[in-house]
Structures are given as structure tokens and as C-alpha cells.
Design a protein around this nucleic acid. Structure first.
Length: 766
DNA sequence: TTAGGATTTG
């Protein structure tokens, strides 16, 4: 390999140079000497951009300084690199690196008189059989409490504040970043670069950065960091346990085990010593008169006037207030018209001003953005007495106000994408007709609940909101942890302080507690797969039209010629109204089954055997009613003949209750449960406590939340009420609850978990 | 050069 990156360990290169090479002193680099088997070593003090010569050959020039002759009048030499090697070197070689050049051709330097360097230069290329070893220096990182004016240093820091890159009034982009490290010293850095990509890719407070070659200056009596030649940065997610993958624009960087360890240590320190706000607000959680960061997708954009520009964005949730629509000419609106129309209920208009306009104009429709410090402004009521909420991104960069484009690989984007894909647009259209009163019903329910509860006399002395049930006594988290578990079994890393009662709503399980059986709710794909499998067997006509059901069968017109049979269960030898009817279907697709559930009371997917109809594999739902799929426990069910349904059909008024259907079919039904994780903190420690709720949580049925966008939003609002996002730990409401611990053992581990039980939540506003 | 953290007032 003509260019090698060597690591220095204790001052020596890790990979030894070929033994036939001998070091050549700068003064012996003269014409007429034999330089075969010689190498020259120097420090890179200057490098020029990679260029192309007239004939298309790549060309790269660096200047090396000979440290052994650093006091001499002439101590540096030009190195001219050609072809592929030029390209390779440009990627690897950085200011300050040690470079070893072998197999060079020596020639007179035409620029020696002007640049004051050595009278000769060295020419190298792959064709000439040259080799360059670039030895990355052993980086030393300076803690923030040891920074000195006028030095260029390498450092690590946790982002305490940042302004996403914005267009400065000069020629470059600018980004301001305030760092903190375990010495508890802050450093504000002002970074410039003409290339947006060369500035650190910081997406949120708490990210961790590594800066190389940052210049330290004193400004207003404080140390300040500024970009210097060769500045380079890596940025990492600051979350404990997240993969340690650097974000950087440079293709080559040093990153080894030692660095990985540093990042992990900083994450742990930050988790216990910094209060980092929770997840960014969603549109469903916005309030008038506040500033917030929004992660969203750009759906449309339009010019408004010289100093403002419109962005239409969505995050899949609905703003609970009427929002303003900025009037623009249809011809000025960029974006897919159909999508803009479909999403009109869920998109909001954000008007950006002044310095943000240029960046906003350049944004691509469909890209994922984080817009920092959006201002929600309540506009006064109009003639009809309806007030609305406006979204502004004012001019200036105070408080980090700005727009950042997030890459698709960003975990928040991945999460948002998955959520956006799950949004049922039909549902959102229906929501257009719902009033915000209905959306607020969660809160009304909480208020209603209060009258039914035994109220605790204890009032919060902090003046914060307080959620509680009737309390017996309060146990501090640290007492709980010490008394119930041995420390090494605490299933949780930084114990001192954690920011948020984390929520994992929507991660539902199906469960049957008889034998501890649990499984995750399958997605539609699993069901579809089973339906396709069962459709391979054609319906058996001998089983059609019995005393208790009427059958119809047809063949699809497509190439597959699929046979579909539907058996309508009769009551009193008569067919009932569709909304009271139970039917069984053979050979249907997922879509067809869903369609039937919209019109008929119950749908049971079945298949034919030689003698009887039977249920499909119990991985599929045994019954569909409305939006709800009912599943049976594979382990404990003993399916009975389908004709047992006729006993229900014979009842005076068949109710087709799922439990009754399950019973006659020998199915042990599985129950939907919420599993939610709350991180509870009381100043003495933190624990993760799980809440298992089998039916309803704040009037939200577990069985319906997966298919109902409205309920998902209601859940989000409830969670936002229990733990308002974006607040510091000290400002979060209190939650008092019963917690019990339980042990989970397997061959390798013994863990203790906590469960919230017997707790009713009420709100006390002090 | 630019900005140098510390909300606009449209």
C-alpha cells in the first residue's frame, strides 16, 4: 500500500518501516547524491488543496519540516505528489502529522526563492514506486480547566448549548457550541467554515464532541474556542448505551478503543451530572406562548415576502389548537399537491424570518428537519371568536434558534419515519371534524376522577403539580434500592439522577397469565402470511350451506383464480342484519378480511378440511371485531369443532361476545396489555418501574390503541401531562405510586424489576 | 471577515 497510516505507540511507529530504508538528513537532499533506500521524515506544516494538472493527473502538495534541523535557516521542503497517491494522501494527511517519504525523485524547486524552502523538492507517485507513511500523532486531550490563551489543543466536551450552523454575515457558515466536561468548566466555541459539512454535526444538547486543533483565545475575560487551520470534529450521541458511531465529514479519522472508552465515560458522567431535557415536543403537545424544538418532515415550502418564508411540516400528531394557515399564492407553493392536501389537517405552517430564509429556501421537500426554538404565538380571537396558534421562527440565533437537517440515519428520524408510516390518513381526516374539546377530554377525565378519590392531605411545598393517590407513607428511592436489592443487580445505569419518566407506550403485549405466556402483538404481515398459506387449500363445497350457515363462493378474476368462500351464520334459520352477523371466511386476503370487519359484526377466518371447517393456526387472530383482533393462547387452547358456534347462534339474541365465542371454540383468549416504563427519580436515586395495565389506562383500551391514531395521541397527551417533555428534573410533577419488586432469574443473570401496582392517579394543583 | 449564547414583537 503506497500510503499507510501508522499509529504511534510510545513514540514509535506501530508498524516498523522496511529495514532497508535509512533516514536521510535534510542537508543531504542534494542533486548528485544517491537516495535509493533512503527516506525523509518531517512534520506536515502546510498542505494545499488537491488539484488536477492540465493533463488530468491529480496533484497534491505538502510542506514538511525537518524537526532535527528546526533551527536551521532552511528547514522545510516541498513534497509534490502525483496521481492516485495524491488522492490518497489528500484524504489521510493532516496538519501536524509526521510523514515519511521514500522512493522519491529529487528535483530543483522552481519556487525556492519565493517560499524560502529547500532548493530541491521531492516528487513522488505510485508509478515511480514511491511510498508515503503518514503517522498520525498521538493526540493529547486537554481538560477544559487547563486551557491556555493562544494555544491550539484537542479536547472532548459535552454539548451544553449549540446554534446549528447558520449563514454568517461574512463568507462562511457559523456554529456556536458551548461545551462542558467533568471538570465542570464551560467553553464556548465559535466555529466557522465555508463548507456546512465541516462543522460539527450536533443535533441535540447532550451530544458529545471531539475537537482536534481548536484554537484557544481569551475573550471578555473567558477562554473561547475558535476554528484554526486543520480543525476537525467528531460528534457522538450522548445517550448511555447508544452505539458509539462518530458523525463526521472527514473520511479518515483516528478512533480507537481508548476514544470509545472516553465517550462512554463522558456519557455516564453527563447522565448523572447534567439535566438534559426529555424528548422534543410533538405538535400534539404544543402550548401557546412557548419556545420549542420540533423534529418533523418538510411537506411544502413557499416564498412569502422578502424577509419571510413558509415551511409546511408535519410530525404525524395533531396540534390540539386551531393553527393558522399563511396565505400564499398557489404557484409559489412547492411540494406534492396530493400529499399537501391529504396531510392538511396534520401539517402546520411555520413562518421563518430574516437570516433563516436563505437556509429554508434550500431545504428539500421530504427532508427531515429539527427546527430549534420555534415560537408559538396565540393570535387573538377572530370575528367568530376563534383564536388560533401561530408558529414563528424569528430572525436571529438567540437560544440556538435555527434549522437543522437531520440525516435519515438519525435515530429520531427513524422513529419519526416509522410513526409517520403508521399514521392512518383516513383517521386524520375524521379528526378534522373533532373539536379540541374532545381532544382535551383526557384532562376532564382526570378532573372527574378526583371526586372519587381519597385525597391525600399532603401538599407539595414546591408549588409544583403533584399527581398522587391516597398515600400510606413515602419511601425514598435510595432506601428502596438498598433494602430490596443488592447493588450489583440494579437493572439501571446512572443511578443518581435521571431526567424523565420514560414512556414506552404502544409497545403492547398479548398475555395469558395462567402459564405466564406472553407474546408481542403480531403485525398485519404475520396475519397476511397465514391467510395466504390457508388460501392454498380451496374451500370444500361439501361443507357449504348447512343448517346453521349459508355459504357463497366465487373465484377471483385475476391470474391466481383464488377461491373465496363466505359462510353467514344464521339465527332462527334467517340471516341477520350485517351489523349483527357473524361470518366465517375462507381464502380471503388481509384487505378483504378488514373490509368485512367494517360491515359485519364478527369475522372468523377458517379453512376447509375433509370433514369440517376449522380455525387457522392460532398465530392468527381467531376473531375480528371492528378494529380489534382477538388472539388465542397457542399453549393452552384446545380448539373445539366450529359447529359449536351454532349453540350461540341459537340463543334468543346472539350477542357474539368474544369471551363466549372463545369458550365454545375451546380458545384460551389472550389479553392486550400496556407495558409502560417510568423512570422515577426522587433526588435520592432513580429506578425504572414498569406498569402493566390489562385493560384501560386513562380510559384508553389497550386493545384499540394500536389501530387508533386518536387514542395514540390521547396517550401521548396523558403522558405529556404526567411528564411534560422538555422540562428540567426540578420542574417535573411528582408521581406517587405503589411499587413492588420482583425477581427474574435465568442461568446467567438475576435481575430485580419494579412494578407499579394499585395506583390511581389524580392531579393536585397547588 | 463572519460571532463572541442568553428568544420576537413580523
Amino acid at each position: 500500500m503506497p500510503v499507510q497510516l501508522l499509529k504511534i505507540i510510545k513514540g514509535k511507529s506501530e508498524t516498523p518501516l522496511p529495514s532497508h530504508l535509512q533516514k536521510e538528513d535534510l542537508k543531504y537532499l542534494q542533486e548528485g547524491f544517491d537516495h535509493t533506500n533512503k527516506y525523509f521524515q518531517g512534520i506536515v506544516i502546510l498542505s494545499y488543496p488537491l488539484t488536477k494538472l492540465k493533463d488530468g493527473t491529480d496533484f497534491f502538495k505538502v510542506v514538511l519540516q525537518d524537526l532535527d534541523n528546526s533551527c536551521s535557516r532552511i528547514n522545510s521542503i516541498n513534497i509534490l505528489i502525483y496521481g492516485k497517491m495524491a488522492e490518497d494522501c489528500a484524504k489521510v494527511i493532516r496538519h501536524g502529522d509526521t510523514c515519511i517519504v521514500a522512493g522519491f525523485k529529487l528535483a530543483k524547486s522552481p519556487t525556492a526563492r519565493e517560499d524560502g524552502r529547500h532548493g530541491c523538492h521531492l516528487e513522488v507517485s505510485e508509478e515511480a514506486g514511491s511510498a508515503i507513511y503518514s503517522v498520525a500523532p498521538k493526540y493529547v486531550y486537554t481538560p477544559l480547566n487547563h486551557l491556555k490563551d493562544g494555544t491550539i489543543v484537542n479536547l472532548y466536551g459535552i454539548v451544553k448549548f449549540f446554534k446549528p450552523p447558520y449563514v454568517s454575515k461574512g463568507t462562511d457558515y457559523c456554529s456556536v457550541v458551548t461545551l462542558l466536561d467533568p471538570t465542570n468548566v464551560k467553553l464556548t466555541c465559535t466555529l466557522f467554515n465555508g463548507n456546512l459539512d465541516s462543522l460539527p454535526k450536533i443535533y441535540k444538547v447532550g451530544d458529545i464532541v471531539r475537537f482536534h486543533r481548536i484554537k484557544i483565545r481569551e475573550y471578555n475575560g473567558q477562554m473561547q474556542g475558535v476554528t484554526s487551520v486543520g480543525f476537525a470534529s467528531l460528534t457522538f450521541d450522548g445517550t448511555v448505551g447508544a452505539p458509539v458511531v462518530p458523525r463526521t465529514s472527514s473520511k479518515v479519522y483516528t478512533f480507537m478503543d481508548e476514544e470509545q472508552k472516553t465517550i462512554e465515560e463522558l456519557r455516564v458522567w453527563a447522565a448523572s451530572n447534567l439535566s438534559i431535557s426529555g424528548p422534543a415536543a410533538k405538535l400534539s403537545g404544543v402550548q401557546p406562548m412557548l419556545f420549542f424544538d420540533l423534529t418533523c418532515q418538510l411537506v411544502g415550502k413557499a416564498k412569502v415576502d422578502g424577509s419571510s418564508f413558509l415551511l409546511k411540516v408535519w410530525d404525524g400528531t395533531k396540534c390540539p389548537y386551531p393553527t393558522w394557515k399563511v396565505p400564499v399564492e398557489a404557484k409559489d407553493l412547492e411540494g406534492e399537491k396530493v400529499l399537501l392536501h391529504q396531510l392538511r389537517i396534520l401539517t402546520v405552517d411555520i413562518l421563518v424570518y430574516d437570516n433563516h430564509v436563505q437556509l429554508a429556501k434550500s431545504l428539500k421537500i421530504g427532508s427531515f428537519l429539527r427546527i430549534y426554538s420555534i415560537h408559538t404565538k396565540q393570535a387573538s380571537a377572530n370575528d367568530e371568536g376563534v383564536s388560533h396558534i401561530e408558529f414563528h421562527l424569528h430572525g436571529g440565533t438567540c437560544y440556538g434558534r435555527g434549522i437543522g437537517v437531520l440525516p435519515d440515519s438519525n435515530p429520531d428520524v427513524q422513529e419519526l419515519k416509522a410513526f409517520l408510516e403508521s399514521v392512518d390518513l383516513a383517521d386524520s381526516q375524521n379528526m378534522a371534524s373533532m373539536s379540541s374539546m374532545e381532544l382535551d377530554s383526557t384532562f376532564n377525565n382526570v378532573t372527574d376522577l378526583e371526586s372519587h378519590l381519597q385525597r391525600c392531605q399532603q401538599l407539595s411545598v414546591t408549588g409544583r403539580k403533584h399527581f398522587f393517590y391516597s398515600c400510606i407513607h413515602i419511601t425514598e428511592v435510595s432506601t428502596l434500592v438498598c433494602s430490596l436489592v443488592q447493588k450489583q443487580f440494579i437493572p439501571f445505569l446512572p443511578l443518581q439522577e435521571i431526567y424523565r419518566q420514560a414512556v414506552e407506550a404502544g409497545r403492547n403485549l398479548l398475555t395469558h397469565f395462567g402459564n405466564g405466556f406472553r407474546r408481542e402483538v403480531p403485525d398485519g404481515g404475520d396475519f397476511d402470511f397465514i391467510l395466504q398459506g390457508s388460501a392454498v387449500t380451496a374451500p370444500n363445497p361439501e361443507l357449504h350451506n348447512t343448517s346453521w350457515y349459508d355459504s357463497v363462493m366465487w373465484t377471483t378474476q385475476d391470474q391466481k383464480q383464488r377461491k373465496i368462500a363466505i359462510h353467514f351464520v344464521k339465527h332462527d334459520e334467517m340471516l341477520q342484519q350485517p351489523e349483527d352477523t357473524l361470518l366465517m371466511i375462507e381464502g380471503g386476503t388481509l384487505k378483504e378480511v378488514w373490509k368485512l370487519t367494517k360491515r359485519f359484526k364478527c369475522v372468523i377466518p377458517v379453512r376447509s378440511t375433509e370433514h369440517d371447517l376449522e380455525l387457522l393456526d392460532l398465530s392468527a387472530p381467531f376473531l375480528l371485531q371492528g378494529n380489534i383482533k382477538y388472539y388465542g393462547c397457542k399453549q393452552c387452547s384446545t380448539p373445539k369443532p366450529i359447529k359449536n358456534l351454532s349453540s350461540i347462534a341459537a340463543e334468543q339474541r346472539p350477542s357474539w361476545e368474544p369471551t363466549e365465542i372463545a369458550q365454545v371454540l375451546g380458545i384460551e383468549p389472550l389479553q392486550y396489555v400496556f407495558i409502560m416504563k417510568f423512570t422515577l427519580v426522587d433526588g435520592t436515586g432513580a429506578i425504572n418501574a414498569y406498569l402493566f395495565d390489562y385493560e384501560k389506562f386513562f380510559q384508553i383500551p389497550a386493545s384499540e390503541i394500536l389501530t387508533n391514531n386518536f387514542l395514540q395521541q390521547k396517550m401521548q397527551m396523558t403522558m405529556n401531562m404526567l411528564c411534560p417533555p422538555g422540562r428540567k428534573l426540578d420542574d417535573l410533577p411528582w408521581l406517587e405510586c405503589f411499587i413492588k419488586s420482583y425477581n427474574v432469574r435465568d442461568a446467567m443473570k438475576h435481575r430485580v424489576y419494579y412494578q407499579i401496582f394499585d395506583t390511581t392517579v389524580a392531579e393536585d394543583v397547588v
